[in-house]
Each structure stands twice: as C-alpha cells, then as structure tokens.
Design a protein around this nucleic acid. Structure first.
Lengths: 362, 362
DNA sequence: GGAAAGTATGTAAGCGCTTACATTTTTCGG
DNA sequence: CCGAAAAATGTAAGCGCTTACATACTTTCC
C-alpha cells in the first residue's frame, strides 16, 4: 500500500501505514552518513570516481551496496541540468519501419549511456507538437524527429531552448535543419523510372495523406517527376490518400481501380499499403503482376514473404537509427550543427512488378 | 550552442556565450513576479485551478503565456514525489505484437494524463533488471512487465519501493503477481488438440528459448499437454529453440526437418517464426499444408497475408494493452492489488494447417 | 455590526542531488 | 624536515517546484 497523504516528515508515514516495505528509500545523505564522508564525496564516487582516492571509494561503494541506494533521477536532473536522455517522437510504433529504426537508435544511445524517451503522435501534427514540448519539459537533452514538417513556432521553441534536434526518415538539401535520412523523392522517382521503362503508362498511387507528411509528399512527387521525364502528364497520376494500415491499402486499391480501371501499375507509398493492395488484388481476382503491378516502399521484412514478393525501395532503417544516435551524441558533445546526411536507398526488384498487360482490344 | 560549463549564477553564462537563444528559460518564480502573486498561487493555478479565484487565475495564465512558461518536470517530480509516468520494459519493439499492445497501452495512459516510458531488454534477463531499476530511479509511478520470469531480488526491490507492477502477456493462476494476460499454455494446447484431431502424430516445435521466457515455455508445455492427452509421448516433441526473427524460423525449420523428416506438423511459438518456417518450406519445395502443416501464435496482421494464410492463435493485444493501462491506473489510485485477468484467446483456422499426408510406403 | 466559518493567498521549508569554493591532507623537491 | 603545489574531501548554496501552515480577506448568520 502506498502512503498517499504526503506528510511533512517522512517518519510520520509510519504512523499511518506501518508496513515494512515503506521503509524510506536511501538517499545520498544516508550513504554519506553510513560511509562517514560528505555528500559531495559520495556524489563524486558515483559521477567521477577517479576524483576519489581508492580507500574512500571502496567504503562509499560498500555503503551504496549495503543500503541498496539508487540515485534519484529527478534530483540529479534538477541539480545537474541534464538528463542524459534523448527524446524521439515517431508517428506510431505499429509501423515496423519506425520500430526497427528506433530500436537501433535506442541500442546505440544505450551504448553511450543515454536513455531514450519515445512518444508517438499518431501522425497528428498537433499531438506531435505537444509531445515535443512534453519531452523538452521532461528535460530531453536532444530530440529525434521524423520528417521536416512542423510549425515554425515549434522550431523556434526548440532553438530558444537550445535543444539539439535531428530530423530523420527524410532528407531535403533545401532545408537547413540537420537530418539523417534519405531522399524520398529521388528514391521513388528511381522506382517509377524502372516501371516506366517496362512500359507502364496508366499509373495510380496509394499514399498516406500528403499535407502534413513530407515523406509521403516527396514520394508522390518522385513519381510525378519520373512521369514528366517520360513525357507523361504528371497529373495523370491517380492519387488516393488513405491513413496508414493494411486495410486502408486494400480499400484504396479498390477505390483507385474503380476510378481508373485502365491502371496497370499501383505504386504505394509504403509496403504496408502495398500489402493491402496485394490482398485487394487477390480478392478481386487480379493477377499480380500480370493484370496489375504493385510496388511498395521501405522493404519491411514481409515484403519478401508476400505473394508475389514485393518490388520495393529498400531503406537502411537500422543504419539510419544507429547513425542518427551517433550524430545526436556528437551534437550534444560539440554543440555544433552537423551537415545533413542522405543515406543511400536501393530498389529491390521482386515479383510484384512486371510489364503491363497487352491492350486486348478493350 | 550550449552553455556547458556550469556556473553558479546563470547570468554568467551570458559572459561566456551571449547568443540570444540562451535567454534563461522562465521559471515559476518569473511567472509569479510577472503576475504579481506568490509562487504558491502559480503552482495552484497549474495543478488545482479551482482553488484560485477567477480573476487571479486569468492574470497568472496570461503571465504563463507571455513568458512561454513550461513547468520543469524534474523539479516537479522531485517536489511532488510523483511523476505521472508509467514505465514498461518489453523484449523488443521490433516484434509487432509488443508494438501493438504497447501502442494501445500508451494511448490509454495518455487519456489519463500519464506518460509512458519504454525500455527494451532484447530478451535478456540481466538487461531487463537493469532497465527496471533505471525506470524506477527515473520515478516511474508504476510498471508494466512482460511475463513473470525475473529474479526474486527484482520483485523484492519493487515491493520495497512500493512500485505497483503488472505482468502482461502471460497469465498463470499459480502466480500471485497481478497480471493482465492470457493463458499461453491453454491456448497452445487448444491449437495442438485441433491439430491432433486432424491426425498429426509427428510434431515439431520451433520456439524462442524457453529458459527465461515463460510465454515460450508455457506454449511448449501446452503442446505437450495435448500430446499427453492424446496418448502420445510428450517428449516425442521435436523442440528447436532459436532467437526471435523470421530468418531464425527459417533456419529452425530446416534443422527440425533434418532431425525428424517424418514431421507432419511444425508448431511455432509465434507468427514470426512461423513465417520463417513457411518460407523455408517453400524453398525446400514442401507444400503447406499438403506435405507439412505449420501453425503460429499471436495472429499478427501478416498471418493472413502469408501464402498459405497462417493458422494461429489470436491474441487480443490491443485490448490487453488498454486494459493493462486501466488496471495500473486503478492500482495507482486505490493502492490495491487487483486480481489477475486472463483474456480469452481464440484459434484462427486458416490454410497452413491441414491433415497430415498419407503415409506412402516411405 | 461582529464573531465564526470559510476562501484566497502568502511564506518558507523542504525534495535529493551537484558543484563552486574552502579547507584539509598528501606528496615531493630541495 | 619544511613549505609549496597538488590531491582529496568538506561545506553549503542552489536547481525549480510543491505544500503545510500562517495570514488576510470574504461571507454568513444571529
């Protein structure tokens, strides 16, 4: 049972609730008393052990063990004005892509003694802003954010609080915000060029909503760029925007094909949508890639397991996470703004993309 | 640039680094001064607004806005001795199952004004213990843990610190630790019974390492239970233990079939391993379920997309996460230990399980 | 109109730690 | 063996907030 009514002196808790486990938790001062040194010495033992002579250190460490002392994080953060914590706001953990990148990010941070605080925004801009502010209030020393798109006010806030911030999952040479990402537009354009070379002309795109999601927007732009290069009208692209999810991909595929039955290629903004599209195609009795080709983006583990295996853009998520961590740590140490990095992506050609069906006197 | 050398008076920072963004962040006291009230009043405005009369409140809130004040989390936590933070240690975020449950957990916590702190242990017991201690040191008011298996010392620590703790993803009536989970053994036994009824006798199991993972162990036990019920030797089960991952499932499938070529059914400890098994089967030219049946556990989204679709145990992960959040919040409020809950699971019969092949005079 | 009771606000003592500066102890060259 | 420099340790002032208790101001009711 918890001692809820806070009372001035902790010992009074005993009166109200004398359960044995409510023994007050050991503090630095307890350790100091037990080891017969000052609190400063204990603190030094914990934070910079080599400033303390061996014999004393032993004694203090023994006291720490005896009392089962654990430093209080809040007190430490308050006094030292740094938390060794890095925050990250991602759209959702349910997207394997973020889970993978963030896992690597966290592992690398851990290796450097930093802790990761994750928040998710559900792809909602307002919620993201809230989460960012919450992480800063909690003392995040640095921040990892996904994509560039967010209010100028938020960027200003981050600058005012001097919180080193790194953008990820995106790379845009035109932006001056440092990033560790990849060029969504170029990557998707390359995939589109490949498809166009195979003869596709009637193209549909299933994408996440593009207004507040630069990754999604850039991918669509990539398709349009390739179409323009090939002499097609970039606005001939049939675009269907849906939220994230396999089901959504399924729905969107039906919508798109209903709107444009001539479609021979459906390029999806990510693999999850593509998987949904594949499912819809199967249910509709369309053979992939004979009747219609489908492509994805991300190269999640399941892309290769799908039937047919998904042609997609491979993104080095783990490497991105790892390197983002290193970059952020360096920003923290040097206080310098690093140059943005565009990680290379490459196309994984598999079965879901083939030449378009011959026009049989339709 | 960050003012790194800490100096006694903040203003001295200016001397070393007069960049404009280093303007000191507004504190409670600043707000109080600006609104011409005491810090206590400001604090009350923020935490229990109805204790403050309207006119004063307005004035304070205006000051808060004017100064762009954000409360300092560490200071608040230190003074109030509570953080409104719940911690969770999961094996890995890369497992969609945890991602999904935790996402729901977080959403529900958010609805109640609590923040989630996630750590991952990589399925390593020692690391998990470390993470738990770290979360407690950071002031987690409560904890969500996966499975029962952990050192008694850790449980003792949690009790001593009176941190309400809920076990999840597991349910065992024999344990007195409160849980919001499901009965892994019973669920797997049911699936095994179904398979046995179809005539399978040569069974292999691909599982995560079972020594320090009660979920995995209970699932294996479930298979053995069903085998025993059917008059088979429970230790005739060919068990292959591998780490988590599609690739691992693939490897394990080959190993298992090499060791026991007669196998007609491969029951996997989770869907990811099963997906790997499916892939291996395909590569080996085995038809599923004609030559060999495969089952999974969890019912991840992709189970239905696999070829053939995976017969598996459906687990209500989102509901589990949501209810775990509610239970934990209740524990926090009442200080009472709730009864454990076993959520119902059910079998999703799909194509990957069929009757065993006829013995053709092998 | 004034005492009692209730409301609103202020005062100030911590919460558990870090760290600048002061003091004590050790080391070491001459 | 002495004194100065270096190393180890101690002292105490915060960090930014909450909250028990004190005080001031309103109501309420006889």
């Amino acid at each position: 049972m918890i001692c809820k009514e806070r009372t001035k002196r902790r010992t009074q808790c005993y009166l109200m609730d004398p359960t044995p486990q409510d023994k007050p938790v050991a503090t630095l001062a307890d350790v100091a008393r037990h080891a017969n040194v000052s609190t400063a010495t204990v603190s030094r033992c914990l934070n910079s052990p080599d400033q303390v002579v061996g014999r004393t250190r032993e004694r203090v460490m023994q006291a720490v063990r005896d009392l089962g002392y654990t430093p209080n994080f809040s007190a430490r953060a308050l006094a030292a004005k740094q938390t060794n914590t890095v925050g990250a706001v991602i759209p959702t953990m349910e997207n394997a892509v973020f889970a993978r990148g963030i896992q690597a990010f966290q592992e690398e941070l851990g290796r450097h003694g930093k802790t990761l605080l994750i928040a998710s925004s559900g792809y909602k801009e307002a919620l993201e802003e809230e989460q960012v502010r919450a992480l800063v209030a909690r003392g995040a020393d640095a921040l990892l954010l996904i994509g560039y798109h967010r209010s100028p006010g938020l960027y200003a806030f981050l600058r005012q609080r001097s919180v080193p911030t790194l953008v990820s999952w995106s790379y845009d040479a035109a932006q001056d915000q440092p990033a560790m990402g990849f060029d969504n537009k170029a990557a998707m354009a390359e995939l589109a060029r490949l498809a166009l070379r195979q003869g596709h002309r009637e193209i549909a795109c299933i994408s996440a909503p593009i207004t507040s999601n630069d990754r999604a927007r850039h991918r669509v732009e990539g398709i349009r760029l390739a179409m323009a290069e090939a002499g097609l009208d970039p606005f001939g692209l049939v675009l269907t925007e849906v939220p994230y999810g396999i089901d959504q991909g399924e729905v969107a595929f039906r919508t798109a094909l209903a709107a444009a039955p001539e479609t021979t290629l459906v390029m999806c903004g990510n693999d999850v949508l593509a998987l949904g599209a594949l499912r819809a195609a199967r249910e509709m009795g369309l053979r992939v890639p004979l009747d219609v080709s489908v492509t994805g983006f991300d190269d999640i583990e399941l892309a290769i397991l799908a039937e047919p295996a998904l042609t997609t853009v491979h993104v080095p998520h783990r490497e991105m996470g790892r390197r983002a961590a290193n970059t952020l740590i360096q920003m923290l140490n040097d206080g310098e703004t690093p140059a943005s990095v565009a990680l290379p992506t490459d196309i994984r050609v598999r079965q879901s993309l083939g030449p378009p069906r011959q026009k049989t006197g339709l």
